[in-house]
Design a protein around this nucleic acid. Structure first.
Length: 254
DNA sequence: ATGCATGAGGA
DNA sequence: CCTCATGCATA
């Protein structure tokens, strides 16, 4: 049934272009930090930067090396106790449990962060809090967010002891603005994209265009799909990891 | 909870 | 165009 829809990446690839590409850049990237713009009402401004990026690679490959770890410890510099995936995992779970115990939603946490008035720390979305709890963020992103969420948690629990209750009730939703629309890629097309991704995670612009036309999708949609797919691969917990989805001897999602 | 998208910053 | 952090919209 699907044989018509299911393109054979390996076979069709020759029609699109030679499989020679990918200069394979060492992935050197500098983060910039948070921001939110497209708000046509008010322009908030985030002066700070949430990213604690090291300035290049993923920054956690070498730190786990026994020798290096020992060297770091010997140097008196902080061990990687803050960058240890298991520590992050443990914290994420503690965080979630205590958050729920406080009767606070993920969205609430996001909003509350702005009230902490930490330097360069504004509010975050429910999505981000959720992703933090489920470890579906990059290693560096987790490390950057951990101290912030930890600060909120401590503050929230401190106030909980005081039995604080604030009776606010204003729910005046602002008028309707233009809604952003999300294009939905159908299952067959998605399967094809995955097949292409398997053989070439970073297709050239020309290839992307060819794939887009073949699948009858906008080129930009296809390009963004590949970008998002690459990001998924870098998550601490790859979406597809049925085993040990909670704890144990967490290791590496890569 | 997750899919598709935006935008800063960097080559 | 990419990577990364992040979020709106939606399943």
């Amino acid at each position: 049934m699907d044989q018509l829809d299911m393109l054979d990446p390996t076979g069709q690839m020759t029609t699109l272009a030679p499989i020679s590409e990918s200069p394979l850049t060492p992935t050197h990237q500098h983060l910039h930090g948070s921001y939110h713009s497209m708000n046509h009402m008010m322009s908030h401004h985030h002066p700070g930067t949430l990213s604690g990026h090291t300035g290049g690679h993923h920054g956690h490959s070498a730190v786990h090396h026994p020798v290096i770890t020992a060297a770091v410890a010997a140097a008196g510099l902080h061990p990687d106790t803050d960058t240890d995936p298991r520590e992050l995992e443990a914290f994420a779970e503690r965080f979630k449990q205590r958050r729920i115990k406080l009767g606070v939603t993920q969205a609430d946490v996001g909003k509350a962060l702005a009230n902490l008035k930490l330097p360069g720390v504004g509010a975050l979305s429910q999505s981000t809090i959720c992703r933090f709890e489920s470890l579906t963020l990059s290693h560096n992103n987790m490390i950057a967010l951990k101290p912030i969420l930890q600060a909120w948690l401590e503050e929230a629990e401190a106030q909980a002891k005081n039995k604080r209750r604030d009776p606010d009730a204003p729910s005046v939703l602002p008028a309707g603005e233009k809604k952003r629309k999300r294009t939905s890629i159908a299952a067959p097309e998605k399967r094809s994209l995955e097949a292409y991704f398997a053989v070439q995670p970073r297709p050239s612009g020309e290839k992307i265009a060819a794939i887009a036309e073949k699948l009858d999708l906008k080129k930009n949609v296809v390009r963004v799909w590949f970008c998002n797919q690459r990001q998924k691969q870098k998550r601490i917990v790859s979406s597809v990891t049925p085993s040990m989805t909670g704890h144990g001897s967490a290791g590496f999602g890569y």
